[in-house]
Simulated assay, not measured.
Amino acid sequence: MTEPVISESLAAARQRLADALQQAGRPLADARLLAVSKTKPAAMIREAWHLGQRDFGENYVQEALDKQDELADLAGIVWHFIGPLQSNKTREVAERFAWVHSVDRVKIARRLNDQRPEALPPLQVCLQVNISAEASKSGVSLDELPALAEAVLAMPRLRLRGLMAIPAPAEGLDAQRAPLARLRQALEGLRERFPEAPLDTLSMGMSDDLEAAVLEGATLVRLGTAIFGARQRHE
């Protein structure tokens, strides 16, 4: 399998995001690219960093820790944990990441809060919403979302920034936009309910639905294959 030329694929991803923002009538600074680097070697992350990419998303804790150690010399790199989070892995995430996008229950939030070192800034958190109500997907339901948000807002070592979702695949722009619109509306509802909270983040949109996500207000767009090529199977 031929690996992509990172300079070309990253430039194409940035251009695609810029085009989508322009089409949506939004400023170019309104959304940024989260390069999903799971299963990819640290050398590819280093190359993207040298090209100005700073936000990287990882799904597997131990794999991410190994990369973080190897790339510790890179200034300004921002690590986002975006995968399902088990209770026995929260300490490493609380200590080593800047963002967690996949908080979906109070138990996980409480462990992250309690394990976040005092010397570090609060952990930036998005609540994962099961926006398509899929039995196989992680995420809090829309009905349970306000209670979870209220609990997280009371945790001093966490800073609730917004919502994340991975909608069910859909064909066509309108079908893709429908669940993303529900996520945007859910965030708007939280803003009304908790007006003092810094709820400014919608983590949504991947390779197949980037344009739909930007039209619905995405601020962090998660692209992996489009930048780094097809993923290896994770053992």
Rank of each mutant, 00 (worst) to 15 (best):
E134Y: 05
R161C: 08
R159W: 07
M44H: 11
T225S: 15
A20N: 03
A43W: 15
E211C: 02
R46L: 01
E150R: 14
S37F: 01
E235R: 14
D66G: 14
L215C: 11
D55G: 06
R231L: 03
A64T: 02
P179I: 03
L190T: 07
L183N: 05
I45M: 15
G205E: 01
K40V: 10
A42F: 01
S207K: 05
A178C: 01
L120R: 15
L173M: 09
G229R: 01
A175Y: 11
P84M: 10
V129R: 01
V221H: 08
A20E: 00
E3W: 12
A149C: 00
A64F: 04
A186M: 04
P121W: 15
P198I: 04
E8L: 10
I45T: 14
R161W: 06
E188P: 11
K38V: 08
F228I: 05
W49T: 02
G76E: 06
P84A: 14
G217F: 00
H234M: 14
A31C: 10
A212G: 00
E3N: 04
E235Q: 15
I131W: 00
A24V: 00
D208M: 07
D19Q: 01
A175K: 13
T90W: 04
R159N: 13
G205T: 02
K40M: 13
L199I: 12
A94D: 07
A186S: 07
R233N: 12
V129Q: 00
G139K: 02
I45K: 09
I227Q: 13
E58T: 08
L160K: 10
K137F: 04
M155Y: 14
L51I: 01
D104N: 06
Q176Y: 03
A186R: 02
E211L: 02
V140M: 04
P167V: 13
A175M: 06
E196H: 15
P121A: 11
P117V: 10
A175H: 13
S136E: 07
T219K: 03
A133F: 01
L71A: 06
N59D: 12
E134K: 10
V221D: 08
G224T: 03
D114Q: 15
W79Y: 09
A133L: 13
A151G: 06
V61A: 06
V93W: 13
P146E: 11
D114L: 15
R32I: 06
